[in-house]
Simulated assay, not measured.
Amino acid sequence: MDTAALVVTDQLLARPAIRDVARLLGCPPSSIAAALKRTEKALAVRLFQPGAQGLMRTLDGERLQPLFAALAGETRRLFRRQETEAVPMLGLEALHRILTVARKGSIRAAARELGMGQPQLTRQIAHVEAKTGYALFARSAEGAVPTPEGLLAIDAARRIEDLWREMSASSGEKFRRMAATVRLGAVFPLGAESSIAGLLASLSARWRLRHPRQPLFITSMIAEELLNGVRRGIFDLVLLDLAGLPDDLDGRLLSTSPLVLVASQETAERAGGTLDSLLLTSPLAVPSARSGLRQIVDRMLESEVFAAWRGRIDPVEVDSIPVILRLVEDHGFVSFLPAASLPAGGGRLAALGLPVETAMPLYAAWPKGRGDHGLVAQVLALAGGPAVR
């Protein structure tokens, strides 16, 4: 790690735009991007992610911003630079060697402790002094004594080393936890009583008992985001509700659930309780085309059985099953949902069977040739074993 990257990263965290920081510091944008890359590599964390308007701070970026601000402040103090000025690139290892000389009081003793030759360390000191623009030590027969400017530099260097050690330790521990964590992505459960919610809860509880030292991290997304995540290696395994798996994925069918048309009891009674009357008199709420459920619904509606309704259905898209259920229960909407997602006994909801048999599958999927088959087998075994049709 180096001092220039510390200051650049601090500026980026304050204003996440590479070109803006480049103009502020008077550096090429490529130098700013390279400095950020060095920082993220040294910490083994992502501080930014691409956004619609440029860079967006990650949660790690937010968490580490105060430490970077303190590091940048000490770095500017070391080089006697203003906030809008770039600083020279100086490796933190060079600062550690300066601190060793100050602590030992002798270049020879410091060189011996550092395991390097005295001439090499002397050249290192001269290099740092050239970068800072002032002498750090006064050499004499008694040893190396810090100059008044050197005392300030040593204090700044000590603070930089302490802050970097604190940052590296927290990031290193996080990296170790992440490296040991099994990452599972899953489609959003369709309610607390849905089969997916039950499967994920059961898997979490069983995994904790079977693998107490290997955390299982589960996050829910829509199908499109899960596909992107497993292809990029963000997830080890994903649970998808697609009609079929893409060619680049291996997988296993875990379960299927028939689709039904769902309405509130009141809406169903008012419409006479028939599929035809409900579809013609009630607005339809469905997830967006980025979800597996919507793709299955669209395929069903394109069949000849639904030809009479096709031009009359104008769905409202909502990528939230709880919101869709509230639209159904409280606002007279209808929706196509898996029967397994409905509460036992139906509650306030009425479920009507469909004229064409349509089921929503749930697949466990992983990249071809890249999956850890032992890990996949463990997850599938704890998730309920073989496919259920």
Rank of each mutant, 00 (worst) to 15 (best):
M56C: 13
H96D: 06
A69R: 12
P88N: 10
G91I: 00
P88L: 11
E62I: 01
G51R: 00
T58A: 00
T84S: 06
T100H: 02
F68M: 08
Q82T: 13
L99N: 15
L71F: 15
L95K: 03
G51H: 05
F79S: 06
L55I: 09
L67Y: 00
V87M: 08
R57V: 06
T75P: 02
L99T: 05
P88I: 13
A72F: 10
R63M: 10
M56V: 15
G54Y: 06
M56H: 10
D60W: 04
R80G: 13
I98E: 04
L90S: 10
H96L: 06
I98R: 02
R81G: 08
R77C: 14
L95N: 10
Q53T: 15
Q49N: 13
L78N: 08
G61L: 01
A69H: 15
G61M: 05
R81V: 02
F79H: 11
F68V: 02
G51T: 03
E93A: 00
L59I: 00
M89W: 08
F68I: 07
L78Y: 09
D60Q: 05
Q49A: 15
L67Q: 06
G73L: 13
L59R: 09
M56I: 12
Q49L: 15
L78P: 02
M56E: 15
A52V: 06
R81A: 07
P50Y: 06
G54M: 00
E85S: 12
L64V: 11
E93G: 08
P50H: 11
R76I: 06
L71H: 15
E93Y: 04
L78C: 08
F68C: 07
L59K: 01
L59M: 11
I98T: 03
H96G: 11
L95H: 01
G73K: 13
G61A: 10
Q65W: 09
L99W: 12
A94I: 09
A52E: 13
R77D: 14
L90I: 10
L71G: 13
T75M: 01
A70F: 12
E83Q: 09
E74L: 07
A86R: 05
R63F: 07
L95G: 03
E83W: 13
E62D: 08
R77E: 13
R81N: 02
H96R: 13
R63T: 08
G61K: 02
L55K: 08
L64A: 12
A70I: 05
L64H: 14
Q53P: 08
R97W: 09
L99P: 08
G51E: 00
L71R: 11
Q49D: 14
H96V: 07
E74T: 08
L71D: 04
R76A: 11
L95M: 03
T58N: 04
P88K: 07
T84G: 09
G51K: 01
E93L: 02
L64M: 13
R57Q: 15
L78A: 07
M89L: 14
L95I: 01
